[in-house]
Every structure is written in C-alpha cells, then in structure tokens.
Design a protein around this nucleic acid. Sequence first.
DNA 1: CCGGATGATATGCATATGCTTATCATCTGT
DNA 2: ACAGATGATAAGCATATGCATATCATCCGG
Lengths: 160, 160
Amino acid sequence: MAESAADGPETDDGRPHLAAMTVPLGRALIAAELPVLRAHGLSMWAYAVLLALGEEPMRSQSTLAQAIGADKTRIIGVLDGLQDRGLIERRPDPRDRRVRLLLLTTEGRRLRDAARADIRRWEDRLLARLADDDREAFLRGLRTLSALSEQEIADPDRPS
Amino acid sequence: MAESAADGPETDDGRPHLAAMTVPLGRALIAAELPVLRAHGLSMWAYAVLLALGEEPMRSQSTLAQAIGADKTRIIGVLDGLQDRGLIERRPDPRDRRVRLLLLTTEGRRLRDAARADIRRWEDRLLARLADDDREAFLRGLRTLSALSEQEIADPDRPS
DNA sequence: CCGGATGATATGCATATGCTTATCATCTGT
DNA sequence: ACAGATGATAAGCATATGCATATCATCCGG
C-alpha cells in the first residue's frame, strides 16, 4: 500500500482508495507516537492497556484483551511488566477466583495522563494542518467509520 | 490498539487518539477489500502494482517498490506472477539494460479497471454512512494528512 | 458429585514484513 | 581500463502477530 497516497495510485476521479490513504497514515501515526510513549517508558501495548483501564476495575483479562484488540495470550507479559512497575494492580475477583480484576494505580493514572497529554499536544499540532471546518468534520467522519464493526464495513448497507 | 475506538480508550475530551481510530479502521478496510480483490484473482500487492502503473512505462522496479511502499526484494515474485499472467510487461530499458520498464498490458488495464470499479462501489456505499457535508471534508482531511511525509507527521510545525 | 466450560498462562507453528548480505550484469566517472 | 555504484534477484535472519493446543485452577448446571 502506498506510503503517500496523495500522489500515488489513484482511482478514476483522482482520489486514492480509502485503504491506500488510511493504512500508511495509521502506520505513520504509530511511528510518530512511539518515541513519545518511549519517553514515558511505555510500549504501545502497555499504553493501550493504561488507556483502557477506567475508574472502575476492569473485570477479566479477556475483556481487556478484546477491548484493546490484542490476543489474550500476548498481553500476559505486558500486564506482568505494568504490575511489576506498580502501574496496575491485578486482584482475583472474590466472586470468581479464576477472574482477575484490573485497576490503575495512582502512579499508573499519573503516567497515563502525562503520556496522553503529550500525545494530544502532538495531535493538535498535526490537526492544525487542516482547515478549521474540515478538522471537525474529519474527526466526526473518522469516529463514525472507526465505530463500525468489521461486518458493517464489509457490507455497509446492512443496518447497524 | 483498540478494534473499535469509538467506545474504547479515549482521551480527556472523550475523543480516541488518532492512531487508535485510524489503525483498526485501516485494518478493517483491508479486510473488506481482500475478498473483492480475490474475486478478481488479485492479491493486495498485485493490485497495488496495477494501480501504480500509469499510461507511461514506469522506469525501474525500485521506483515502483518505493511508490507502493514495498521492499524491492519482495515485489520480484509479485511482478513475476503478473507478468506470467500477461497483466504487465517488463522490458529492459535500451538506455540502461539494468533497468526494467514496466507497463500494463491491455488485459492488465482491463482487470485493474474492473477491480477498481468494484472497490469504488463498495467505498461509495461505506461513505454513504457519513453526512454529505462530513464526507467531502473527511476525504479532504484524509488526503491532506496522508499526503504528509513521516517527518511532517512527526513534527507537524515544520513547513513542508 | 461430576462433566463440561472458562480464565489465566505457557508454548509453539505459520505467515508477513523489515532489513541485510551476496551475486551478477550493467553503467559511469576518472 | 578500471573501480565504484546501481538494478534486479536470491537467500536468509529477526521480529511481530494470528491462531492453536495444552495445563491448571475454578466455576456451574444437572
């Protein structure tokens, strides 16, 4: 898929395919985020975990894995690292001792907020490249499309 | 990264990170395109090659690889397959026999146009999910951001 | 009480990709 | 004439990921 689609392969009316623009953009956004996260001592998956944990304990590692789009067998080590650093806490659920309850610690919340603020600052500067009117509409469009399930994307005419 | 970011990890104002929306969306767009391309007997890389070849012969496989964001050692087999099927033609450049000139054949152009039309139809149905005003602005925004280099994305304040 | 299922964890296979090294043919500048 | 560089190609290593299988502790419905 083209690295920069705007002057790359296009369709009839000169607009590149959606995937041809979205995939390399996603890759570049990740590449830009990584050093910011690394400055906070976080991997992408570790940050995804911290972002996913809210004010209430999250019930089960399977739920967390699903929420962040990770394989549950692969987040074991990420959770181990975060727990070892005192950024999250894992507790057995007293109602079902197979299940782990996951919570942010104060330190984890502090680190998540700091990283998130830095990412947002960079995003605001990037989005400043768009015209004011376009920016809000672009974000609405992006939210709408990214909220669709894979099925809705594959077959857009079906009602949600 | 969250599969669906709209109800996933968010930033302070409730908006997910750009990457958290863009990366899974890109993945879902690819997943939706694959069966369409497969119906035309094309892989994603093969289609990217056909899209990249224009009316003029493309001079050099290195240039092509760069244009589609592929490693030049990895497109050898893709080009072999397309050539074997009579979809592209490879000719030594008479000015420099190391270099290959790459052209679409009539059959290749026909197949590219058919696949592209099908992808566009699906895209139009998907984009119909957006409000009319948002759709154009979303596409403008997406084109603007995807046209930026990795450097411009990483450091958005630098002039382009 | 017990069989089946589930959550967590460990291990491993297959695939895709980024990148490197090497070879051969060819070109270019000195 | 020749050294160095380049385009095309082959081969291979390292990493990441998707997915599967297996084990143990635990739970639940019959």
